[in-house]
């Protein structure tokens, strides 16, 4: 009987947590998150592998063909296609484009020519050197890079090996 009375007393005394302090803390945390919240912009990217540019002719000054017996790859550099991007020094917009020695009138024409080159199974090229005017704007250059990275090599891989060489203006 005594035990029952004790239990009744315990059940009547309720524990009341003071939630106001916790609410203050929670509001402070909430305020911090609201003030520091910045949704990240949705950005894309073009992934590239950029080896150091290498000369397309690797003959040193005064060296004769076949003279260097240690050179096991005499055509090193010959698998590189050169694309020239010349920009207007004032505006930075592309003024002329070229593949090797020949000129191409537009980006669409460049795309067509590159498709022709890379669709040929016998073509030796697996990387591209972009010779770019120093004043060329980044967004103009990105259009050319976009065209290049769309190309597929004869083995089906996407062209991703590019190198950049700066061309002084003027």
């Amino acid at each position: 009987m005594r035990k029952r009375k004790r239990r009744k007393r315990h059940s009547q005394s309720e524990v009341e947590l003071n939630l106001a302090a916790m609410l203050d803390l929670a509001f402070q945390l909430l305020a911090f998150f609201i003030l520091t919240f910045r949704p990240a912009p949705i950005e894309g990217q073009i992934s590239l592998r950029l080896p150091l540019p290498q000369a397309t002719a690797v003959v040193e000054d005064g060296q004769q063909a076949g003279e260097d017996y240690n050179d096991t790859n005499p055509i090193q550099g010959l698998n590189t296609l050169t694309i020239s991007v010349i920009a207007d020094p004032k505006t930075g917009n592309i003024s002329s484009l070229g593949i090797g020695e020949s000129q191409v009138p537009s980006l669409a024409a460049l795309d067509g020519r590159l498709k022709e080159v890379f669709s040929d199974a016998g073509n030796p090229f697996d990387q591209v050197i972009l010779q770019v005017s120093d004043s060329c704007r980044y967004d103009e250059l990105m259009k050319v890079i976009d065209v290049c990275t769309h190309q597929r090599l004869p083995d089906g891989r996407k062209l991703s090996k590019l190198s950049f060489v700066g061309l002084p203006d003027g």
């Binding site: 912009p41 894309g44 073009i46 992934s47 950029l50 990105m142």
Partner: peptide, 18 residues
Amino acid sequence: IRACQDNGFRNFALKAVN
């Protein structure tokens, strides 16, 4: 880019928006 290449970096990602 050249400074990165000279120090051994080869993988690059150029950011753009759609």
